[in-house]
Amino acid sequence: MHEVRFSGFGGQGIVRCALITGKALSMYDDKFATMTQSFGPEARGGACSSQLVVSESRVLYPYVTLPGVLIALSQDSYNTYEPKLRDGGVLIYEADLVTPKEDDGRVQIYPAPVTRFAEELGNRLFANLVTLGCFSAITKIVTPEAMKKALPGLVPDRFLEVNRKAFDKGYAYGLESLEKKPLVTGDAQ
């Protein structure tokens, strides 16, 4: 079983991240996934997080309790959720927006300049797909094939291709990061 939390501020596509991943897992990777989300009344700018519980059998308890994976795309979300990440867990964070505390080796950290990559593709709105690419490459919780299949219907048709590119860019970067710093698996996730 995996517990994953995506976090950032409203407008970064945090909820969409979990939606795409949950759809990929439950429709194309033959897993059970339950997605929950928390957000404030604001449409944009407020703190935002979305959570996924992934299992080989039906998910009964729908909430994450001690996530093994945290994606943090803002400083606030890093500050809030990093302490709640399991020991040995995986932290992927927005390298240009988050200044992490000194690495004490408690969790496995993978910085990724996802917003910058997205801007290189034409719009920072694609940052969430870059993030998903990194997430898929590093954690291997979800296959890249399933993720791409899940995109239609969840991103506008006219941006399908560029979203796929954003995913690939993140995926390649994730693999590079892994080469530099292999993931220690086990109970971590």
Binding site: A18, L19, K23, M35, T36, Q37, P62
Partner: peptide
Amino acid sequence: ETVGHMHEK
């Protein structure tokens, strides 16, 4: 709210 906004297959 939770079941309403919870996504599952």
